[in-house]
Design a protein around this nucleic acid. Sequence first.
DNA 1: CTGTATCCTCGTTGATACTG
DNA 2: CAGTATCAACGAGGATACAG
Lengths: 131, 131
Amino acid sequence: MNSKDPPFGHSPLPGSASPEICTKSAFVLSLLGDKWSVRVIVRLSAGTLRFNEIKRLVGGISQRVLTSTLRNLEREGLVHRTVHPTVPPRVEYQLSDLGRSLWTVVYPLGEWAAEHMNEIHAARARFDQAR
Amino acid sequence: MNSKDPPFGHSPLPGSASPEICTKSAFVLSLLGDKWSVRVIVRLSAGTLRFNEIKRLVGGISQRVLTSTLRNLEREGLVHRTVHPTVPPRVEYQLSDLGRSLWTVVYPLGEWAAEHMNEIHAARARFDQAR
DNA sequence: CTGTATCCTCGTTGATACTG
DNA sequence: CAGTATCAACGAGGATACAG
């Protein structure tokens, strides 16, 4: 995810009217669809945190992957990273304005999930049992 | 993605107040965060489509992966699959009520992307060039 | 037309050890 | 404390061929 940008810039189909939304929704999902980004953002939505605080709060994430996840979020401009040149080093992470703005539109997905999680699990049970 | 459910049912951290939202947003993203689900849903949001119509409209997806994607969406209860036992076979796909409901909350992400895509690309450019 | 069945490649994740 | 460096494992995704 770090290395090369996904192929989302490709031109809309010629003669096609509306596929704007497709590309753009998929683009946002490609930013957050990985395993950890949202979980990190949720924690940062509560305020500034240090590396190991995030690690503890998120839980189950390795140092290496958390580093990578935070770098991605920083690269997309969703998270700010502040290094205090002390010893031992102190690095603080916080959501940028852009990150907070994104959060306001991602949050409703959590609410939707809360309302419909049971329906999804019911559908899964039906589907799986039908085989 | 078909085989086993992601580990999202795990208990909220003991003594922690709010991490509900985390788990649930991440759950929805785990449904749609793969490479093709949203692109398929967008097309189906316009109406009923046959297998190869989706394949053509989405573009760049292989038969095997489209089949898998549609099976997942069907399993989650987001898409209905109707088989007409004719020859040659005719299979129609459409969003379920649940799928349409989800779409209303995913759509705003596309709008957000449309507004802020430039900021993200600017942030990327700044970040990449700083190395 | 609508899928299955294989095979293969690549990226993401994870575990572990080491550094400033 | 906050990373970087390796290495191993796994799964998603793609190419191709075949089937009902």
